[in-house]
Design a protein around this nucleic acid. Structure first.
Lengths: 169, 169, 169, 169
DNA sequence: TTTT
DNA sequence: TTTT
């Protein structure tokens, strides 16, 4: 019956550059992998343990943030837990993904503490080879090629944008 | 560097009875599977979609709540995201688990809205056959047999309890 | 420097019926007061302590839910913390409010566990006298009278609705 | 009936240095004020708006973190909402406080991104005049003077510490 | 593998 | 000012 409460907030660092892709229907989806540290007692000593989670951010906000979402960047994420389901070799598979509603840049390699858009001109020179595509990518029909907008009448994929996606970072 | 913020809160219903087990070191761990519904637009119609997550609750609180955590019970869970890692046939595997700090009973098949311990005398007559043990159980060294406490000098597994676990429900 | 992460999730019961009002600009705002219980040790005994918070839900979702949001209803709320600021007798005053993004009905006096719209025909017979208007109401220009929509060209107040507000409950 | 779910997570910057005090019973309580920014559309322009909240952190963790919790420091806080109640001139008053379970240092003026305890030797030279004491301080029986521990047999105030408070930052 |  |  109806929508259940589902809320997640984590802080962590990206384990690699974010990947911006587009579904067949033209939606932008930015995929990330985040390392969230926790400390636990091992005997009488504190040890650090990393947990790795997948994050996806849909829509224009990911298009804007993508250039800052580089390996090592510290971010805070709020969103909800989702289960991604797909078939592989006739086998049903699933993974838990954090579906982000909002991402905040917190520094690290990112401009979170400086002035965004300043002094980062070199960031995207480094080609994004897309080698992260290997592995358990579960998005259907996702490509790295930005669609020409003419093909998407509704224009929501990368067009003039709606309220949420225009939030400055 | 140190512990990152990691906070999850969800509401949902148990897809089966909770399973209370004990690790070799005598810690109680209560495992659950929860269905969290969301609604999404499919064309111009609202459809409901269930997402399934694993929840684990450690310590005495699980021992107390276990009897109410039955299939269909609606609960609210707060905790943190964890990554469970283990090896299977020489393969590294992992799954995301919600490590619960607190669970609130919200009704459904549970006594959440009545008086706990009242009118539920028949609940545990039904033998817990433990058939849910099959499948991807990733706890190491976990058994269904409650250890005799004499074997566990520290006595934390089921003993007189510490602060957190004595919270009434 | 941009938007900070700000996320709240609570469960509690309404201390009185929700109040649906409209700002001068025609926005619907549903005000609630929620009691959130916690348990604490007093000596060797558990005692229950209630904490009271203000919740506001903007837009059409409040218009839909209003009829179910009655005194005693248990709800779960996700949203963000906000500071409401106003002047009273030349004095600056403020209060913390939970700005709800989503509210889930969880039962109690509400139809949360039944089928909404069924068997609750008598609920709204009881006139809503609006006596709760006294006290520290801090919304500016808020009235209990639903505006005639002709006056509000943008039509967002109660018109055809946008995505978020159409979510079923 | 029992404890309700109550969970808050925010990111923001301290508006002044944290204040570490001790209750009559010897408990350490660290008080903070945090500015949480949000962005909103004003016409067609994004404007930034700060919201200010009170945070309190009890126990040894506050004693450890206090030296880093300076004006301007960016932190992430998880905890629960609480209502602080007291009497002033025979008037009942209350305020909402975030009761922190955990605080993460995120940089800014703090050593959150460097090595704590390194290169910050000058930080506490600046005397903490305690002028922030004016205003709506609602803790009862709180003083700035660290008690001599001999007076507190249980030794929890600043003694050998329990599990939670020893977490490194 | 699934709840209402 | 308060809910169960």
């Amino acid at each position: 019956m109806a929508a259940d409460i589902n809320s997640v907030t984590i802080v962590g660092r990206l384990t690699r550059d974010a990947e911006l892709k587009y579904t067949n229907s033209g939606s932008a989806v930015t995929g990330m992998s985040i390392a969230v540290n926790r400390t636990r007692k091992d005997g009488d000593q504190w040890v650090e343990e990393a947990n790795f989670f997948d994050v996806s951010l849909w829509g224009r906000r990911g298009e804007s943030l993508n250039q800052y979402l580089q390996k090592g960047t510290r971010i805070a994420v709020t969103g909800e837990l989702r289960q991604d389901r797909w078939e592989q070799d006739g086998q049903k598979r699933s993974r838990v993904v954090i579906h982000a509603n909002n991402i905040q840049l917190l520094g690290g390699n990112s401009p979170g503490q400086g002035t965004p858009g300043q002094g980062f001109s070199g960031n995207n020179q480094r080609p994004n080879q897309g080698y992260q595509n290997s592995g358990n990518n579960s998005y259907n029909n996702v490509s790295n090629n930005k669609p020409s907008y003419e093909n998407y009448p509704s224009g929501n994929a990368g067009g003039s944008g709606n309220f949420e996606d225009d939030i400055p970072f």
